Simulated scan of single mutants.
Amino acid sequence: MSILFTVGYEGTDIDRFVRTLKAAGVQQLADVRAVAVSRKPGFSKKKLSQRLAEEGIEYFHFVALGDPKPGREAARAGKFDLFRSIYGDHIETDAAQDALQDLKDTVSTAATCLLCFERDPETCHRTIVAREVTDQLGFNIFNLFADDPERYVRHAAKLPRFHPSESVTAA
């Protein structure tokens, strides 16, 4: 079975973040932030896409899959049921469904990682997006934590890998 990675950049820096992606074998990064601007150096869209290109990782931004402002505010306030409800409504919009289809097409071609800010995947909308993608493609989800890339280097042989021949698109 193939894999879809997810990662948040909270609590890390750009160098450790990139080392984590490379150790996991990520070839594409799918940014699912509504606003790809960050106060953390290196994580705004332009700088991030440039750095990833230097490392041989392709960057895609799926704006329509970002969490709308009320959902982000609910999550920040710890109102996770409200956040999930808001995002659940959002992901059903035509724009989000179109972007979700584009994401599925992208994910089917190479080892891909979904990016958002939150370190904890259970309190981030990227997990909802990942489930939408993997349910249709038959992929597994593997959550990366970019604060300690050496754990992935040490255990590289045990990491799941992307297998394009197992995706629905390739079949």
Rank of each mutant, 00 (worst) to 15 (best):
1 M>C: 13
6 T>Y: 01
9 Y>I: 04
10 E>A: 06
11 G>V: 09
12 T>K: 09
13 D>F: 01
13 D>A: 12
15 D>P: 01
15 D>F: 09
16 R>K: 14
21 L>R: 00
22 K>D: 08
22 K>Y: 08
23 A>H: 06
23 A>L: 08
26 V>D: 03
27 Q>M: 12
28 Q>R: 04
28 Q>K: 08
31 D>V: 05
31 D>H: 02
32 V>A: 07
34 A>R: 15
34 A>P: 06
36 A>T: 04
36 A>H: 07
37 V>M: 05
37 V>L: 11
38 S>F: 06
39 R>F: 10
40 K>P: 01
44 S>W: 01
45 K>W: 12
45 K>I: 08
47 K>F: 11
48 L>E: 00
49 S>K: 04
50 Q>G: 03
51 R>T: 13
52 L>P: 03
52 L>D: 01
53 A>R: 15
54 E>N: 08
55 E>C: 15
57 I>R: 00
59 Y>M: 11
62 F>Q: 00
63 V>S: 11
63 V>E: 14
66 G>V: 08
67 D>C: 13
69 K>Q: 14
71 G>Y: 01
71 G>N: 09
73 E>N: 14
76 R>E: 07
77 A>G: 13
78 G>D: 04
80 F>H: 10
84 R>N: 04
85 S>A: 08
88 G>K: 14
89 D>C: 06
89 D>H: 09
89 D>R: 08
90 H>K: 15
90 H>F: 09
93 T>S: 15
96 A>G: 11
96 A>R: 06
98 D>M: 09
99 A>G: 00
100 L>Y: 01
103 L>F: 00
108 S>P: 00
109 T>E: 08
110 A>L: 11
114 L>P: 04
117 F>A: 06
117 F>I: 11
120 D>C: 12
120 D>V: 10
121 P>I: 05
121 P>E: 10
123 T>V: 15
125 H>D: 06
126 R>G: 01
129 V>A: 01
129 V>F: 00
132 E>I: 05
133 V>Q: 04
134 T>F: 09
136 Q>H: 15
137 L>V: 04
138 G>R: 02
138 G>T: 03
148 D>F: 08
150 E>A: 13
153 V>M: 14
154 R>K: 13
154 R>E: 15
154 R>M: 13
155 H>A: 13
156 A>Q: 15
157 A>Q: 14
158 K>L: 10
159 L>C: 08
160 P>F: 12
160 P>W: 09
165 S>R: 11
166 E>S: 14
168 V>P: 00
169 T>R: 02
170 A>C: 12
